[in-house]
């Protein structure tokens, strides 16, 4: 697709670059390419980048650039944007033990769509998801799109405690809880992959724009990889 964008201010030290108005997986490689290019070419000018579904926020130093100046520099860079296949991002496999013992909402999601638990697992692990954004908590990656045949609304009442590693869905989105927090998504299983790991110099194994495939594993494989039942 031909990228289009508007640049608006987000206060005196940040801008929002808006690439679209609707959540659309076609925007993922565009925003990824823009993030990469601006990070590289405007390194000296920027203090932080926050890519999301339809926008890229860029924080800058107001001493070096005013809004018109940073706007110009962004325009010049984005005009040269090349959204090629190489911008698709890595494909990362996340192993998941799908089981009611660690996926307390498997039955609820199955009932919601009047399908079996095996169908829920198949539908969740069949799809390659795009990472739209990472936020809410460190390493919490918003992925989509969950098919309409699986999409299930959030719980009426959020759980006070969701275990770290829980793999969950909410409407058309799916995610892994990086740390134990309260949460209202439907939990289908658990992974041993650490989505937020202080020992990892990059802290997080994925980036916005990467793609994810969930791979079902057995209880034994889960435990062997260091999986915790609680």
């Amino acid at each position: 697709m031909k990228p289009q964008w508007q640049i608006e201010h987000a206060g005196p030290d940040a801008v929002l670059i808006r690439f679209g108005e609707q959540i659309n997986t076609d925007l993922v490689p565009v925003i990824r390419a823009a993030t990469k290019r601006l990070q590289k070419e405007l390194q000296e000018e920027i203090r932080g980048l926050v890519p999301s579904y339809t926008t890229l926020m860029l924080c800058y130093d107001p001493r070096k650039n005013d809004f018109p100046a940073i706007q110009d520099k962004i325009q010049q860079q984005l005009a040269k944007l090349d959204v090629s296949q190489s911008e698709m991002g890595k494909l990362i496999e996340i192993p998941v033990w799908y089981d009611p013992a660690v996926g307390p909402d498997l039955q609820h999601v199955a009932d919601f769509h009047q399908i079996s638990i095996d169908d829920v697992i198949r539908r969740h692990s069949d799809t390659i998801y795009h990472i739209f954004a990472i936020g809410f908590a460190p390493g919490f990656a918003y992925m989509g799109n969950v098919s309409n045949q699986l999409a299930t609304p959030r719980l009426q009442t959020p759980r006070p405690h969701v275990a770290a590693g829980s793999v969950a869905i909410a409407d058309q989105q799916t995610a892994v809880y990086p740390v134990s927090t309260p949460g209202g998504w439907n939990i289908l299983g658990r992974t041993t992959m650490k989505m937020f790991d202080r020992q990892n110099p990059k802290l997080c194994p994925v980036r916005p724009g990467d793609r994810v495939k969930f791979v079902p594993v057995s209880k034994d494989e889960f435990l062997l990889a260091g999986g915790q039942l609680e």
Partner: peptide, 10 residues
């Protein structure tokens, strides 16, 4: 709105 980056003072 669709979630987006938020700056200081928003």
């Amino acid at each position: 709105i669709i979630s987006e980056g938020i700056a200081y003072g928003t």
